[in-house]
Write a protein that binds this DNA or RNA. Structure first.
Lengths: 184, 184
DNA sequence: GCGAATGGAGAACGTACGTTCTCCTTGGTG
DNA sequence: CACCAAGGAGAACGTACGTTCTCCATTCGC
């Protein structure tokens, strides 16, 4: 018998690919069933509703996205270099073929007004990202005000890269961050 | 007899309020009919499908949004002050009670993958915004690279203000823009 | 005043989808 | 072997919605 954990992973993998690539409302439960190779009955045993699957998708993506960023940045020396590494990581991400912007921004724009859980997931993700940048800014001995400025550059780069289809915004953001670091 | 122009305006007013406030897919044609006080038959005479109404909504919003920005900024002296006025305008916008981020980013996240017209509208809006900032940067005699950096600050501020529910990101972006202007 | 076109209210139609149910297979247990 | 719990395939059910159609009132040209 296949364990519930295996089913959960298979469903979340399919849900993430589909929700992120096409949007939340554009993907039906039956499409996720087909993509995950799981029966509808089993799917609903593990996720009691589409809403709960959406929230699980957002929760896992938040964990993984931040872990990947922190793993990458952590390989660079603490201080200014580690801050700039954040933008190098974004630059890599923007070049992935299925990159389509921030999953949380997209979900918020689509369902944030009607589903408080989606709005809360987006807020919590952005808060956590800001918190991580704050530790990098503190580690570089830079002024606190820099944290919010870096957040805006990263956020702007993600959205602009998604809509323009180019990874270049990461480089512009990196250069702006370098300049702000130099005067802070 | 009510003219087609009047109907068009009434429908677009209702569509803008509803699409922007709740999302494109969350609002049905019948809700727009009820909110605009127009019959379904008349509605479909003026807009042949929901898709065409969505595109008309995005098109009019692009025109109006940029006109309002340029009107506001144009009241400030050309040069650095006019660039900073862009962020003052954003700060005002973020405080409007129904502010919910960038209509084009939200629409792109929701339908950009499936509807090329929506993705094109978002690209065109962002290109036009960048073009306007480029004229301000040139008018201030600042380096060209500043344009893309200002785009990222504004874009990041819009998204961050939407998700956090606070107008503060406009002030952080303004301060970052001031710093970048000073060293450029 | 009269016929015809216009438009309003809302029913109707087709489709999609979230969720549940039915029926059948299968694999483990006494 | 007999039995039963678990699971798969897919039908079924209820609802929502984009779009069109029906029926009736109003109005405009003559």
């Amino acid at each position: 018998m296949e364990t519930a954990e295996t089913v959960e992973v298979r469903v979340l993998d399919a849900a993430e690919r589909l929700f992120y690539g096409r949007g939340l409302q554009a993907v039906g439960m039956d499409t996720i069933r087909a993509a995950s190779g799981v029966s509808l009955k089993r799917l609903y045993q593990v996720f009691s509703s589409k809403d709960s699957l959406v929230e699980a998708y957002l929760h896992r993506r938040d964990r993984r996205w931040r872990a990947a960023l922190e793993r990458f940045a952590g390989q660079h020396p603490a201080g200014r270099e580690r801050i700039l590494a954040v933008f190098d990581w974004l630059h890599q991400w923007f070049q992935e073929p299925d990159f389509r912007g921030c999953a949380f921004v997209n979900s918020y724009g689509e369902l944030g007004a009607a589903h408080p859980g989606v709005a809360a997931a987006a807020r919590s993700h952005k808060d956590a990202f800001r918190g991580y940048l704050a530790t990098l800014v503190a580690g570089a001995g830079a002024a606190d005000v820099l944290t919010d400025q870096l957040v805006l550059l990263a956020e702007g780069a993600i959205t602009t890269a998604a809509i323009s289809g180019s990874p270049e915004p990461a480089l512009h953001a990196r250069e702006a961050a370098r300049a702000l670091l130099a005067v802070s």
